[in-house]
Computed example of a mutant assay.
Amino acid sequence: MTFDIRFLPDDKSVRVKPGTSVLDASRKARVLIRTRCGGNAACLMCKVSAESGEGLSAPSDNEKHKLGNQLTEGVRLACQAKVTGNCTVIIPEDPLKAAVRAQLAKQREDDLW
């Protein structure tokens, strides 16, 4: 038995066995999810959004402690969330890339005036 996990905004999917972490599935799909701690829930860099929450394991006590209220917003740690069914996760934009993109957009807007 395998399940499909889809990664947005890359729109890449991969089939994995139940119990595979979202982080390991992303590596299999060649989708970058940043992490520094090697998947030990220490750096909190691997935050993703679960589109519906379905198809992923319930948050562990450790994940609940680390994320707190963010869990109610659908945020999960890719290193801790395990695939239990077909699911879709959204990987947030890298903060540095977002800042550069915003600055370039502002420059373009200023050039139009």
Rank of each mutant, 00 (worst) to 15 (best):
Lys106Pro: 00
Ser49Ala: 13
Leu71Thr: 10
Ser21Leu: 08
Val83Ile: 15
Leu23Gln: 05
Phe7Arg: 11
Thr84Gln: 13
Met1Ala: 04
Met45His: 14
Arg36Asn: 15
Leu8Asn: 11
Thr72Ser: 10
Gly85Leu: 05
Val89Trp: 04
Lys82Gln: 15
Lys28Arg: 05
Gly85Asp: 02
Lys66Phe: 02
Leu96Tyr: 15
Asp24Trp: 11
Pro18Gln: 09
Arg36Tyr: 14
Val100Lys: 09
Ser21Lys: 10
Ser57Gln: 01
Gly39Met: 08
Leu104Lys: 12
Cys37Met: 08
Ile33Val: 15
Gly19Ile: 00
Cys46Asp: 12
Met1Thr: 01
Thr84Lys: 14
Ser13Lys: 11
Ile5Trp: 03
Cys87Tyr: 04
Ser52His: 01
Cys37Glu: 04
Ser57Ile: 01
Met45Gly: 06
Thr35Trp: 15
Pro9Met: 03
Arg34Glu: 14
Cys43Arg: 07
Ser13Trp: 01
Ala81Trp: 00
Ala105Gln: 06
Gly38Ala: 07
Ala42Thr: 15
Ile90Tyr: 05
Ser26Lys: 06
Pro95Ser: 11
Lys97Ile: 09
Cys79Arg: 05
Phe7Glu: 10
Glu63Tyr: 09
Ala81Val: 01
Asp24Glu: 15
His65Asp: 06
Leu77Asn: 01
Asn69Ile: 13
Gly68Met: 08
Thr72Gln: 06
Arg15Met: 00
Asn40Gln: 13
Ala41Arg: 10
Leu77Tyr: 01
Gly55Trp: 03
Leu56Lys: 06
Asn62Ser: 03
Thr2Cys: 00
Val100Pro: 00
Asp4His: 03
Pro92Phe: 07
Thr35Gly: 05
Lys97His: 12
Ile90Gln: 01
Glu54Pro: 04
Pro59Thr: 07
Asp11Phe: 08
Pro18Arg: 07
Asp11Gln: 14
Cys87Met: 07
Gly39Phe: 05
Ser57Lys: 01
Pro59Phe: 10
Arg30Tyr: 10
Asn69Phe: 11
Asp10Trp: 13
Val14Phe: 01
Asp4Glu: 12
Ala41Cys: 15
Thr35Phe: 14
Cys37Val: 03
Val89Glu: 03
Asp94His: 14
Lys82Ala: 13
Asn40Trp: 03
Cys79His: 09
Thr20Met: 06
Ile90Asn: 04
Thr84His: 10
Lys12Asp: 02
Lys17Asp: 07
Ser60Glu: 09
Asp10Gly: 06
Cys87Thr: 15
Glu73Ile: 00
Thr72His: 02
Cys43Trp: 05
Val31Ile: 12
Gly74Glu: 05
Arg76Cys: 03
Ala50Asp: 11
Asp4Thr: 13
Gly53Thr: 01
Ala99Thr: 15
Leu112Pro: 00
Leu23Asn: 04
Cys79Ala: 12
Pro92His: 12
Met45Val: 08
Asp94Lys: 10
Ala42Asn: 09
Asn69Glu: 14
Trp113Met: 06
Asp110Lys: 14
Leu104Tyr: 08
Gly19Met: 02
Leu77Arg: 01
Ile33Tyr: 13
Ala78Cys: 13
Lys28Cys: 00
Ala98Phe: 07
Arg101Cys: 03
Leu71Trp: 09
Arg6Val: 13
Ser52Gly: 03
Val14Arg: 02
Cys37Ala: 06
Thr72Leu: 05
Gln107Ile: 13
Leu112Phe: 07
Glu54Arg: 15
Gly85Phe: 03
Trp113Thr: 08
Thr35Glu: 14
Ala98Thr: 14
Arg27Trp: 03
Ala81Ile: 02
